[in-house]
Computed example of a mutant assay.
Amino acid sequence: MSERLRIGFIPLADAAALIVAVDKGFCATEGLDVELVREISWANVRDKFNIGLFDAAHLLAPMAVASSLGIGHIKVPVISGFGLGVNGNAITVSPDLQAAIAAMAEGDVADPLVSARALARVVAERKALGLEPLIFGMTFPFSSHNYDLRFWMGAGGVDPDEDVRLVVLPPPYMVESLANKHLDGFCVGAPWNSVAIDLGIGHILHFSCELFQRAAEKMLAVRASWAEGHPETLARLIRAHDRAAQFIEHEPNRDEVCAILTAPGRIEVTPELIRRTLDGRLKVSPEGRIRETGRYLLVGREAAARPDPVQGAWNYAQMVRWGQAPLSAELLAAAKAVFRPDLYDAAVGTPPILPIAPADGIGECTGTHFDPDDIAGYLSALTIRR
């Protein structure tokens, strides 16, 4: 008899392994009868997950860390033995802001440092003219989207808490808010950046992999207490998702994968939008300009599915940087402990192929080396921080 599980998810491309594991039958092969429950906001997923309405969840990596540390909400220790995606976000801006940044740029605007410094000049000019601050959307305070925007802005001398406004919106609402001019830009996961481009209302300024070579995006998260009581179920869940990730990354399967992901009740956009994301070949302007990278969204390749404690440390460092958490050795250890490569290795049973680069596991575009055991040293080199 199959074991029934309920898993919450948000309609995003990095839910691919989760959806394929269920709809392609990989979970059933492991004796798991999984019901996927589609939610509109991360707060909904978190709250239902925390109180046990979901056995597992498609969760923002920083949200899992914050939950385990008890910051921003109630403390619910979370662990993950499987990463659903590395990278996959983009910063999209309105045509007006794109033009303003391009006009102020001293160098190639495709360089995040050039565009960030240009943004600082745009912000200064707007202040001098007495205009309202620019408004950027992100999906949750404890999200890579928040930290992507803050990192990019800070690298150019823009204080995200003083010079602009950051507001929280569910991923599917970003596009409409940009169209209505409620936002000047946003950072969100695929496919919503591409939706804005196709509607002619935005320009993708940067992929998140241009800010950091490697950043954990979503996790297949379970409560630590649940994992202790269901070790074999968790191992089967990890195996099913690892098979799904490898299936997704096998290029001849892409058409089938896109059809699965865009079915009713799943992501519900055109298969072509998902194909662009998985292939890393995205339209970045309404005029049809294409930008291509092999690192846009890593699902199973380059050991993306194997949780890395360095990512827990980096997310915790961002929380400390922006005043969301105090600095302590205990909290750092707890953040690292969310990412459980040992569970992945035990379930999959084969040694992972570790990534060759970046050497520090993050690869910031500023060239800063991240030491997961020296958060204070990392933060001391940053000009803008709380």
Score class of each variant (00 low, 15 high):
72 G>T: 09
173 Y>M: 15
346 A>R: 15
107 G>C: 00
93 V>M: 02
61 A>H: 06
185 G>F: 01
135 I>P: 06
323 G>T: 07
133 P>N: 03
263 A>Q: 11
333 A>E: 13
234 L>H: 15
120 A>R: 14
278 L>W: 06
247 F>K: 02
69 L>K: 01
283 K>E: 13
154 G>N: 10
27 C>Y: 12
340 R>Q: 11
319 M>W: 00
324 Q>N: 09
67 S>F: 00
10 I>A: 12
190 A>S: 14
294 G>F: 05
34 V>D: 02
249 E>P: 04
76 V>F: 01
131 L>M: 13
184 D>H: 15
116 A>N: 01
234 L>N: 12
200 G>Y: 00
43 A>L: 13
313 A>M: 03
257 V>D: 01
136 F>D: 06
52 G>R: 02
22 V>Q: 14
329 A>G: 06
73 H>S: 12
300 G>F: 02
57 A>K: 04
78 V>C: 05
322 W>R: 10
229 G>V: 08
279 D>T: 14
379 L>G: 00
310 V>T: 14
328 S>C: 04
244 A>N: 03
111 D>V: 02
384 I>T: 08
162 E>V: 13
152 W>P: 09
2 S>N: 14
256 E>Q: 13
123 V>R: 02
49 F>G: 04
312 G>P: 07
44 N>D: 12
90 A>G: 10
291 R>F: 09
100 A>I: 01
69 L>I: 01
270 T>V: 08
147 Y>L: 11
17 A>K: 05
52 G>T: 04
238 I>L: 07
171 P>M: 04
234 L>D: 11
82 F>S: 08
115 S>P: 10
